[in-house]
Design a protein around this nucleic acid. Sequence first.
DNA 1: AGCGAAACGAGACGAGGCGTCTCGTTCGGA
DNA 2: TCCGAACGAGACGCCTCGTCTCGTTTCGCT
Lengths: 221, 221
Amino acid sequence: MSETYRLVKTIRLAFRLARLRRMADKAAPDSSRRSERSRRAIFDAALALVGEVGYDKLTIEGIASRAGVGKQTIYRWWPSKAAVLLDAFTVGVEDYSAQGLPDTGDLAADLKAVLHATVDEFNDPAFQAPYRALAAAGANDEELSRTFVARLMEPGTRVYTDRLRAAQEAGEIADGVDLRIAAEMMLSPFSQRWLMRTGELTYDFVDTLVDQVLRGLRPRD
Amino acid sequence: MSETYRLVKTIRLAFRLARLRRMADKAAPDSSRRSERSRRAIFDAALALVGEVGYDKLTIEGIASRAGVGKQTIYRWWPSKAAVLLDAFTVGVEDYSAQGLPDTGDLAADLKAVLHATVDEFNDPAFQAPYRALAAAGANDEELSRTFVARLMEPGTRVYTDRLRAAQEAGEIADGVDLRIAAEMMLSPFSQRWLMRTGELTYDFVDTLVDQVLRGLRPRD
DNA sequence: AGCGAAACGAGACGAGGCGTCTCGTTCGGA
DNA sequence: TCCGAACGAGACGCCTCGTCTCGTTTCGCT
């Protein structure tokens, strides 16, 4: 019995060492040989499943089997289900922030127009499940949240600060206003309401919000 | 074999029915016989463990063993680890929102004073882990988030709207301003920065935020 | 004070997902 | 053309889940 125990212990140790060695090698699979077909199938499966069963019951096994893919293919390329979902979601959104906000010269109207579209987007069930899941996972996982913010939220905020800067240069916004904070005054109440369900996301809400924020930004005469 | 299978199936069915019946009965354990000692031990264990291992690795088994309590005692009274944590956390915070915001007549100073204290609180590691965990769990669990918001966030927001209303009645804030949205303009950028780690929580930040929000609320001459 | 029922601590149990490890098979780059 | 790496499939041991079953303790009622 003691003999067996020692053997088991030795084997375990060997495994642990092998694992450390592998982490040092950093695996490094050859991405030029990667199957694009599997990659897409995994994204589709992940997005579909998170909508159907929710994030907590989303499993790597489930994604693999739905995608018709071996589990190892997922483990080879992603460290966690959150990472899979982040990539899957990013693919579907990546071209979004390319063009920036419209600039018709009417700041309030431009902001309202874009935020109306965003209201619709955030009220779309297909969009909600993965985005909520990622935001939640990010709250507990600092590493993930850094990527999440850098890849999805930061670009979104930037188009607003850019538009506000244009308005400031046109004299519609007072000098000395902190544009980053101004953007947060508009966007954070929006995200907060949605994420924590503290209120409805309606056109009326964003209209009042935009007006009330801009009221404080205009130059005093 | 077919015989055995049928037997197993019958047993399973019986279990399922029993479960449904129990759910219909809604369990309804007798709360007058509940052990206060176990309840406190579970709260202490849950808060300690979530700080040590994080929410994802927090397990009911872990809480039970740390608290010196049977697993069933937890499952009897709470539906999930999130619910345990919510109760545990609420006990530690419940007297907080009783007294309302100070009213020295200087609105900006009052708001900054309270928000400085809140900055310190949200930068405290002992506070972070359970609060983050609950916010994240709430994002995916609508039922939980309703309780979370009603029990912790809504009372917190209300003290701000109350103080703003007093200021409005004193003529420091223009009529027609939506005070709920005004409060969100101050609080949401704060929570958002903290939860999603989109920025630092500093005294400077909240000072600028308060000034920039109040700037828009004052009556026009 | 004594009884009975219900909650309790402890832990066994089957289910199912984890992450790792084979297998052959397929497919892309030299 | 051929070598090797990535692939689909799935077996494996491990772990935690939520339920169920023991005796034991504790509380409310009589």
